[in-house]
Design a protein around this nucleic acid. Structure first.
Lengths: 191, 191
DNA sequence: GCAGAAATGGAACGAACACTCCAATATGTA
DNA sequence: TACATATTGGAGTGTTCGTTCCATTTCTGC
């Protein structure tokens, strides 16, 4: 619907406000009033650019789900270290998107349509981690590699959740424990 | 407020309905209308027994958080196998409480009061798992044991989330991968 | 079985919600 | 410059929310 420059700018302002609000107050806490207030637009302007509130929210959600996969361009060449590093960076970075993604996972427990989206992106990620496992240890069968990838991603997700709830949690140190190359290496004491 | 038998029964019916609804539609999806409809009571009856909707909801939430710790009575004597087993049983069991707990963890990302409750129970659990780790391998320092417990619980939480979103996921098999006694043992192929 | 308190259902309330409507204005095109 | 249309803010809509109120019924100790 947006054709003029000002309209496209307003659209971006709305999406930016929605992104921030999703991270701060959660999916259910986002109201149209809050979005329009933060984006400094009237309700009429909003509905001139989006069909509904959910339209804007889902736009941001899609963006969140897609950006969980770190560096999707370099597919097929990552080492396990790279993948874990990228995942940790995504979780502990300043972007609100990681918060949104983890909330979505929780919401997938009750909303089937969100569950299927989250699951699909999860399966893609498992595949990439499994490939990396097999490159690291070619003696692994595919099933074994997939199983290890599943456990590793489960752990990374769980650690990410702890890290986002508890800012003092050192996710990177704990995530390194998961790497076969670091097996048994001590984690530095918590500050 | 409840003094007579019928009142206490009604109270239980309301809590039961709230518990089921929390698991099925999530915290934000629970409405007073849904609670009173499922419990077959009028709004007046509800407010005769609870101060607010949140009063009933928090009652169930408290129950959910407390029951995550499997078998708190046998503290200090569990093996790692026992603890993992109990956690898996809790997650994959038929009780709606595991679903509620995982939702809560997600909500802790935006609600500080819920975050602190979830964190407190998490820390208690880490302590128990760390103790079990040290019993299993007395050469571990306390810091190392805590680190391993943290990773293990992160993985269990992440795997539990996957299991509750994807019913075909075999959590028990994957959780066993985490045990030092099973390190390197293959996971049976997914059906 | 009577008195007093507890329990009940449902109508009614204000607040908050997503969304509509529209007159006024800004923007791009030719 | 002039025209068509995109963009704007905000008052107004209908709905749903949690909660209150209260007349009526049910319960229990004495």
């Amino acid at each position: 619907m947006a054709r003029y420059r000002v309209g496209l700018e307003t659209r971006e302002r709305i999406l930016s406000a929605t992104r921030r609000l999703l991270a701060e107050v959660g999916i259910e806490g986002v109201t149209l009033k809050a979005i329009t207030a933060h984006a400094r637009v009237g309700a009429g302007s909003f509905y001139n650019l989006f069909a509904s509130k959910d339209d804007a929210v889902f736009e941001v959600i899609r963006e969140a789900i897609e950006s969980v996969d770190p560096d999707p361009a370099g597919a097929g060449a990552d080492t396990l270290d790279d993948l874990v590093d990228a995942f940790v960076a995504f979780m502990t970075g300043s972007s609100p998107i990681a918060r949104i993604y983890l909330q979505l996972a929780g919401r997938g427990l009750t909303d089937p349509s969100i569950a299927s989206r989250v699951l699909r992106s999860h399966r893609r990620r498992v595949e990439r981690f499994a490939d990396a496992w097999q490159r690291e240890d070619p003696s692994l069968s595919e099933a074994e590699a997939v199983a290890r990838a599943e456990v590793m991603l489960g752990a990374l997700t769980g650690l990410g959740m702890t890290a986002l709830i508890d800012p003092s949690f050192d996710m990177r140190a704990h995530a390194n424990e998961l790497l076969p190359s670091q097996q048994g290496v001590a984690v530095p004491p918590l500050s």
